[in-house]
Design a protein around this nucleic acid. Structure first.
Lengths: 148, 148
DNA sequence: GCCGAAATCATCCCTTCGGGTGACGCGCGG
DNA sequence: CCGCGCGTCACCCGAAGGGATGATTTCGGC
């Protein structure tokens, strides 16, 4: 920065000296003052522009734009809904297995209980959800955010 | 931009006229030419700097930062998957209704066809999806992004 | 005009589901 | 200690679902 200012002043001095020399060499011409002023103005204006550019070159404004990106939005169980429906953990578990597309027999094996027990649980789930079919139970379970 | 240039020239003219006036009023002082040049240089340099700043004002770096925000991510059917599975529009429609938790009878009424037809369609859907139960068909349908 | 895909409906048969009911054991809290 | 909620299991029965197969119609393409 200091370098720039020094260079600036130096150039100014040289210019003035040069102009003066020219003036003395070719005598005073009419309107020389205007030409002189115009030259000085033009040159210094150019210098000013250059200096201004130099000064503001590294000045950058960072604009942060947040973009909505579709995120999986991981599942969070609505425990309040579970509470209000009076669903027991076991029933919720059976509902999840039903939603996974398993038959009562499959669920019985998975949960290490008898098929009858699974039927009892699922019946209770249907009753509490107000569903008549397992597919409906699944649909309601997802709507109530009880299962992913 | 044109406005700036005009203003620039106008100011220059006014300045020269003003200086000339001063020069005539107080007579010619020794070194007046240097003072005059210096003044013109200083003012036009300032103008140049200002212009330079103006020119480079809109230099901004836009940084786009993608932020994971839970978004619904609306459903888009995987038509390619539909194609590869050979699912017909009607079958897809029946699959959607199954996913809505409806019974074959409900679907028959909704689609204005007989229950037998619904059963035929659903059977084909199951075959194409590799499902044995409607709940499984729903689960697979969602996994394959065939239904919302 | 014939062919094939899609949609429609049907019939038989078996499996799975769902409702209803009853019962037993366990653990917790009044 | 007794009741209650929860989980477990059982049996019956009707409804719904699902597999297999065949038939008809409609529509677009070759």
């Amino acid at each position: 920065m200091r370098k720039h200012v020094l260079l600036y002043g130096l150039l100014g001095g040289v210019l003035i000296a040069g102009l003066k020399l020219i003036e003395y060499r070719w005598l005073v011409v009419e309107h020389s003052i205007e030409i002189y002023g115009g030259l000085v103005a033009a040159i210094f204006a150019a210098l000013g522009i250059w200096l201004g550019l130099k000064l503001t070159r590294p000045r950058e404004t960072v604009v942060v734009r947040e973009v909505m990106v579709p995120a999986p939005a991981e599942f969070v169980r609505d425990d309040q809904k579970v509470e209000s429906l009076g669903l027991t953990p076991r029933e919720l578990e059976i509902l999840e297995l039903i939603a996974a597309g398993m038959s009562n027999r499959d669920i019985a094996e998975r949960a290490h209980v008898s098929e009858n027990t699974v039927k009892t649980h699922s019946s209770r789930v249907f009753a509490k959800l107000g569903a008549r079919r397992r597919t409906q139970a699944v649909q309601l379970g997802k709507a109530f955010r009880l299962i992913p």
